[in-house]
Write a protein that binds this DNA or RNA. Structure first.
Length: 599
RNA sequence: GGUCCGGUAGCUCAACUGGAUAGAGCAUCAGCCUUCUAAGCUGAGGGUUCGGGGUUCGAGUCCCUGCCGGAUCACCA
């Protein structure tokens, strides 16, 4: 074994550099920059020497030379170096890379950390129950799911939850339209998916509402008054009042229509490949915050105005005053979020924090929420994080549900799968597959393409969804990575047929350039996972796994495997392939994307 | 108007938190299938990193300023 104990190569190198600096300049350098070497130079790791000139009291070039020389003569991993300006490029021995490969090969969950006992909660999806899920929800769900997987990979127990906005004026609008124009239509009678059926009546409501407003305005009534007095809106408002008063018939209708929606959502979630450990319903939690706010009021955290409304003063934090309870004592949106947050920490006392996957239009809201929870004295407030993501735009502009420009989640998934099927058939890749296997493959590829497309962009940034581009299966895409995996699997099947078993790798082999490069990328996986977790960014994983697949494909094309006569080299290539397939599967798993055995 | 994001190749995105001559994919052009899967690989062209100042060995990245786009600042959710 070249490497000492569980220390990985980078740690070893850092340790050796520290020792070298200590020895040469009698000073400690705890902070120094070790970065991957620019491909145009020889080496794998580069030490940036400018900052070290302060303690070396020498120019950057000379500092670099001294350290490089010392590392070559005093360590077992560095074989050579070159200095370009102030950059010290280190060339490591192939034996060092082989032991990296060996270690990665041995570890079943290479790059993932063991259970740490830490727990965290991730909220995502959280739809309204008046219409089906759309493209924006897809980004939300994929992000939330992926971040959960990433946290599991660094040792957390993750509790996935959502809050379902099942009450309020929006669902009452669908109910009102259904009562007026529905003729008792049901998912069964119409053959429509429940969420789509309810969504249809939401649209129906809006259509009639607009018409009625126009009619009232014709009669000389102002826009503002017309909006309130339109009969259909009056009906919706009436239903909301009745619902809050627990009117039996209204609650029954509400329950029925929400039931339709849940059945529809269920099917959508299933196809998306996401699920939840616990569901919170707004109808259960919307009153919860009030008590907490009143307690806060007693303790002087909040204050009351003359009209009886309760407020929080956040001017010291650079924000405004925000209302928490109306004069009539009813809750507002943020009040219930306060209650829900506290409830969740009671339900899951061991979680250290919550991640809220919610669009960036609510950034202000979460800033306020976390500040309030902090003021109420909850230490965990500091561990709450708003995973804020940008809107998904279409080439035609913003998605507007009223203008009918929303991209429906079910439709989109179906299109992606159809497209995957078409292209797969064209390429003649379904030979030897059963009908069911083929169907599963199309599903895997179509959804892989979609998820990868939505996750490869930094969550914080708004992104453009171009349907033509998303359906691409070449280049920087999920199917490209899936394809690479399938290709490797073909090699491994052949290796198994030939009874090639990789156990221990020699240390005296000279690696090909492309082999070394693949190992270098593999070596980065563990830190990438940590980085992705710290940044709550699946995009880091997507970029990484793409780079890995690309690197492997270069190796694949440059170096033959089974025609290799030296068994030691053959074993290295098989091991390299095994580890790459493993990391691709794991990394894609972090994105919620499955990989096929053949495609 | 205040606050917060963003502006990088024709298009969509990266750039390890201040490091080397700013990288990928798509699109365009030119090559590579009798050898492990061509959904692949190789190469070419394509840039004033929105403009202007500043900080320093070094700036796409930090500071100031202007321009453009978006979000938000509800007793809506």
């Amino acid at each position: 074994m070249l490497l000492t104990s569980p220390m990985n190569l980078d740690q070893t190198l850092r340790f050796e550099i520290q020792k070298a600096v200590q020895h040469l300049f009698s000073s400690t350098a705890d902070q120094f920059q070790l970065q991957p070497t620019n491909p145009e130079f020889e080496g794998s790791h580069t030490l940036v020497c400018f900052p070290l000139t302060k303690i070396s009291k020498k120019g950057p070039e000379e500092t670099a030379k001294l350290i490089g020389e010392h590392l070559v003569t005093h360590t077992s991993v560095v074989s050579g170096y070159n200095v370009v300006k102030g950059f010290l490029n280190l060339v490591l021995k192939d034996a060092a890379w082989l032991s990296v490969l060996q270690a990665a090969h041995r570890e079943v969950n290479f790059g993932h950390l063991p259970q740490s006992g830490k727990e965290i909660m991730v909220e995502y999806s959280s739809p309204n129950t008046n219409k089906p899920l759309h493209l924006g929800h897809l980004r939300n769900n994929f992000l939330g799911w992926s971040v959960s997987e990433i946290y599991k990979a660094i040792g957390y127990t993750v509790h996935r939850v959502q809050i379902i906005n099942d009450r309020g004026i929006h669902i009452c609008k669908s109910m009102a339209a259904w009562k007026l124009f529905g003729n008792s239509e049901t998912p069964e009678s119409s053959g429509m998916k429940g969420d789509h059926l309810v969504g249809k009546y939401y649209v129906e409501f809006d259509k009639h509402y607009k018409k009625q407003i126009e009619e009232l305005k014709q009669k000389g009534i102002s826009q503002e008054v017309a909006e309130k007095e339109a009969p259909i809106m009056q009906l919706a408002a009436d239903l909301l009042r009745k619902w809050e008063a627990r009117d039996e018939e209204t609650v029954a209708l509400w329950r029925t229509m929400n039931g339709w929606v849940y059945a529809g959502f269920e099917a959508t979630y299933k196809r998306m490949g996401v699920d939840f450990e616990k569901l919170y319903y707004e109808s259960d939690t919307y009153l919860l915050g009030k008590e907490e706010v009143l307690k806060g009021l007693e303790r002087g955290v909040f204050f009351k105005r003359d009209d009886g409304s309760v407020w929080v003063d956040l001017t010291a934090d650079g924000l405004d005053q925000k209302v928490l309870l109306r004069a009539d004592g009813t809750s507002v949106y943020i009040t219930q979020d306060i209650g829900t947050a506290i409830l969740r920490f009671r339900d899951f006392p061991n979680i250290e924090g919550q991640v809220y996957t919610v669009g960036n239009e609510q950034e202000y809201h979460f800033k306020v929420l976390f500040l309030i929870l902090n003021k109420l004295g909850y230490a965990w407030a500091k561990k709450c994080y708003h995973l804020s993501y940008g809107m998904v735009d279409l080439p035609t502009g913003k998605m507007k549900s009223r203008e009918g420009t929303v991209v429906d989640a079910d439709d989109l998934m179906a299109e992606m799968v159809t497209e995957a099927e078409q292209q797969t058939r064209e390429l003649g890749k379904i030979e030897g597959l059963t009908v069911d296997e083929a169907r599963q493959l199309f599903e895997m590829i179509g959804l892989g393409a979609l998820k990868f497309f939505l996750l490869k962009v930094d969550p914080k940034k708004r992104m453009l969804f171009d349907p033509n581009e998303s359906i691409q299966l070449q280049g920087f895409t999920g199917p490209f990575v899936q394809y690479t995996h399938a290709r490797i699997k073909a090699i491994l099947r052949k290796a198994a047929e030939l009874k090639i078993q990789v156990s221990s790798l020699g240390e005296t082999i000279n690696l090909e350039k492309s082999e070394r490069e693949v190992i270098q990328v593999l070596n980065r996986y563990p830190e990438k996972v940590k980085e992705a977790a710290a940044a709550y960014s699946p995009a880091i994983i997507a970029n990484y796994v793409y780079e890995l697949a690309k690197e492997y494909n270069q190796f694949y094309q440059a170096v033959p495997i089974f025609s290799e006569s030296d068994p030691a080299k053959l074993h290295v290539r098989i091991a390299l392939s095994e580890v790459t397939a493993k990391v691709i599967r794991q990394a894609m798993g972090l994105l919620g994307i499955r990989v096929p055995e053949r495609m």
